[in-house]
Nucleic acid binder design. Sequence first.
DNA 1: CCTTTATATAACCTATTTGTTATATAACCA
DNA 2: TGGTTATATAACAAATAGGTTATATAAAGG
Lengths: 107, 107
Amino acid sequence: MANLDAAFSALADPTRRAILARLALGEATVMELVEPFEMTQPAISRHLKVLEGAGLIVRRIEGTKRPCRLAPSAVAEIDQWLGMLRRALETNYDRLDGVLAAMKPEK
Amino acid sequence: MANLDAAFSALADPTRRAILARLALGEATVMELVEPFEMTQPAISRHLKVLEGAGLIVRRIEGTKRPCRLAPSAVAEIDQWLGMLRRALETNYDRLDGVLAAMKPEK
DNA sequence: CCTTTATATAACCTATTTGTTATATAACCA
DNA sequence: TGGTTATATAACAAATAGGTTATATAAAGG
């Protein structure tokens, strides 16, 4: 699952998560994404490359601009993997509940 | 959200995801976790430290052993953040559906 | 006690990440 | 056509990650 590597790794950076949060509000150009950060344009361009590589965003070409927006594919894959963890945790909790329930009468 | 940094970053490594998948089946000691990998024990110990730091696992002390198991906290936080993305994507899709629906009659 | 077993830590190396500045490209506009 | 705007890329530095081997620690077991 090389894609999960890229997706989780992309999400590990707070700047990139902030970019995704911004894109959740709608499409934005590179300069619009640069504006809120205290960071140079090349730095943001590279973050965008990482996000695109991870399948988290897609870009159109519109004259000299490259508007970005969220892509659905990667999120689904991440959700699926986390689902495994979530189910395991629920199971463990159920088991723990069982243990606690069994202990109660003895007390 | 420094915790999300650590959690996503921890999940970005395939060895660590494999460890979590193993722990989803139940508690395991360090040596039990080392066994399936072609990697030294110190390497796995460090992966465990990263997972613990991210709040993804917890450890007991049992004599000389340190059995690990999944911890719930971090997964919930990740889910919450991804939920934001998920909702945004659904909204965009709805919007796209609307656009397509509006286009149909014109064709 | 001494040895073995389970785990952690230190020192080290290499590759990758993340920022920078400088520069290239390519569309737009006057 | 010549200047401006939007974006990408290259070259570089500093920090971090992820592995190794060697060694420390501490409980277990003869």
